[in-house]
């Protein structure tokens, strides 16, 4: 059974379409990265999943239940880290957790939860004095209350330093190992790459790709960029390099010394061999694989992928 099924979901505000016929599924037990630039509709989708807003058309099922009709039951089995969190300034970290524990009817220990997110030192401090990162940790601790079957994390790395972001991913992994499905939105590919089983890329309210991280990489075919610094270069050589079977593109950067930039799908030795055969001296060369960030860029801006 899928943990989340979004079926032809459309949401419009007056003339503005926030989501158009969006459909995707999140499988039980997976970590799903929900990726897209700001304004693509990620929060709108999450808001429908949690019944904060109502769809214009289409339907959403969470944990096998209708997102609107059974929202309370869904939320009792779901831990949520909302986007752009606002804590209650006058309540302490402990009181925040007690509220969540009280609301979910669980018997968690506030101290243990805060220990997990690295905030136990501030347990009796009022949240009004917390930094953005501390608020984020507090909200994550609240989301973990009651061992939820589903975790929905909306831009969880906001306000966290690299170390905090790493700890966040660590917790995502632990929760996933416990058996929880994790639905994780972000506008930064790097953050989902390390932890997600599958990634869905949202653009202008439409899902443009859903695949595993490797699958996405392959599908765009970004391949490898080879940068070769040579002593000289002529048009003839450039033509020959371009006509090599594994090369999709070749350009020249710089004049003195010239740098040959080649997009290669397979082996780069063919390119280097061809240069050597023509007596061109290779002074230096670097290779770079297309990163997922490039893949993300290509999907969200519609440009062709080139590893830089």
């Amino acid at each position: 059974m899928p943990a989340i099924t979004v079926d032809n979901l459309t949401k419009s505000y007056g003339q503005t379409l926030a989501l158009e016929d969006l459909s995707f599924q999140v499988q039980e037990g997976e970590v799903f990265g929900f990726l897209g630039p700001n304004g693509a509709g990620k929060s709108t989708t999450i808001n429908v999943i949690l019944d904060f807003i109502r769809p214009t058309a289409g339907r959403v099922e969470v944990l096998g239940l209708d997102a609107q009709a059974n929202s309370r039951e869904i939320r009792s089995r779901t831990g949520v880290l909302p986007e752009g969190v606002e804590t209650y300034d006058r309540l302490t970290a402990r009181q925040h957790l007690e509220f969540a524990i009280d609301s979910k009817g669980s018997d968690d220990d506030p101290e243990a939860l805060l220990e997990r997110v690295g905030l136990v030192d501030a347990i009796d401090k009022k949240a009004g004095g917390f930094s953005k990162g501390m608020s984020q940790r507090l909200m994550l601790a609240m989301a973990l209350v009651g061992q939820p079957d589903l975790l929905i994390l909306d831009e969880p790395s906001t306000g966290l330093d690299p170390n905090g972001a790493r700890e966040m991913r660590e917790i995502v992994r632990e929760e996933n190992e416990r058996g929880a499905t994790v639905f994780f939105s972000s506008h930064i590919m790097e953050q989902v790459e390390a932890v997600c089983d599958r990634v869905g890329i949202l653009r202008d309210g439409e899902m443009v790709a859903v695949d595993t991280v490797e699958g996405l990489r392959d599908s765009v075919g970004g391949g490898t960029t080879l940068r070769v610094t040579v002593d000289r270069l002529d048009d003839d050589t450039l033509q020959v390099v371009r006509s090599l079977p594994d090369v999709s593109d070749a350009t020249v950067e710089g004049r003195n010394p010239p740098v040959l930039v080649v997009q290669v799908q397979g082996s780069k030795t063919a390119v280097l061999g061809e240069l050597e055969d023509r007596g061109i001296e290779v002074k230096d060369f670097t290779t770079r694989e297309a990163s997922l960030e490039d893949v993300f860029q290509s999907y969200t801006t519609g440009t062709e992928v080139h590893a830089r």
Binding site: L50, R75, S76, T78, P82, E83, S103
Partner: peptide, 14 residues
């Protein structure tokens, strides 16, 4: 206005 209602309604309250 502040968005903190989402904290309340993320928990199982109607």
């Amino acid at each position: 206005e502040s968005g903190s209602i989402k904290v309340l309604l993320s928990l199982p309250h109607s």
